[in-house]
Nucleic acid binder design. Structure first.
Lengths: 155, 155
DNA sequence: TAACCTGAGTTTGACATGTGAACTCAGACT
DNA sequence: AGTCTGAGTTCACATGTCAAACTCAGGTTA
């Protein structure tokens, strides 16, 4: 290995590091799976529980924390012919996790799932395939906003 | 909330979901912080420990798992005038976490750190500022590879 | 050569958290 | 009035976390 790249200290202190701050909120066995449910539109306590197999006590605790942190909000809604219920949906702060979500999905598909991916991300308007990447200033205008994208299942 | 968006089940099973697979590997209080150290070039057991404040027993355990999973590899290296030592550096699979890293950093900076960011990501060649985003097919060629980027500290 | 220092762990034992099963409680249905 | 369902809470036990003490190998000092 190239010894000149070795550092004895990280150049950014934990308290100045957005990545470190984010991990403290997101890095828990269940939290990101709960947020995944929210992205897919599953809002009910028992539905989330059945989908991901989380113990009730833990789900209750995590939902509480996610609401405190402003990532989810508790809302009241009513499905056709059903009574009103409460559910948990993403706030703006929560929806802003989209790129984290996509980045993890891409990595997981490539390295844990033999490159298979279950969804494609499309431009909502022209249905063009979208890809996550780092791009230069002159192309910033080409970046799609969260309102302009659509997640489509394959097959 | 728009009731038509509510689902009773996630459309992608956990076992087919790259995101879910990724969370099972990464979602632990310390794992992503250890990977952060690796990105910054901190490779030694004790240096990592001092930087992030992780207990030795836990660090030992996590490094073992990260090596098993092929995200880090244990290497032998020698600094000028020091004896040979072993350290932990990113593999290709580990470096592929760059976009996850950047996505989490962007989110954490925006939502946990008042928009302050400690680093900028530049094109290694023309020092253009780079940004993470979803872009359309005709611009795929503008996406920078991991070899072409450079993380610069602000100030 | 012996004593010491440092890095990289392992062991220990108290404490915290996670877990599944059983319990609660309120609103709607019969 | 009794039952069902959704959304939790409580319990008792297994697992994980933590700080401090211990180990062990190489290199340094006396």
């Amino acid at each position: 290995m190239r010894a000149n790249k070795i550092k004895r200290r990280a150049p950014v202190k934990l308290c100045d590091c957005g990545m470190a701050a984010a991990t403290q909120i997101l890095s828990d066995k269940w939290t990101l799976l709960i947020i995944r449910e929210a992205f897919y539109g599953v809002v009910r306590f028992d539905d989330i529980r059945k989908d991901i197999g989380i113990p009730k006590a833990v789900l209750s605790n995590r939902l509480k924390k996610l609401v405190e942190q402003g990532i989810l909000q508790k809302v009241t809604y009513q499905l056709e012919g059903e009574r009103t219920r409460s559910g948990y949906v993403l706030t703006g702060k929560g929806r802003d996790l989209t790129l984290v979500f996509v980045a993890m999905m891409d990595w997981g598909n490539k390295h844990c799932l033999d490159g298979k991916s279950a969804v494609t991300i499309l431009d909502k308007n022209d249905l063009q395939t979208l890809k996550l990447g780092l791009i230069g200033e002159k192309d910033f205008a080409q970046i799609r906003g969260l309102e302009d994208i659509h997640i489509r299942l394959k097959l």
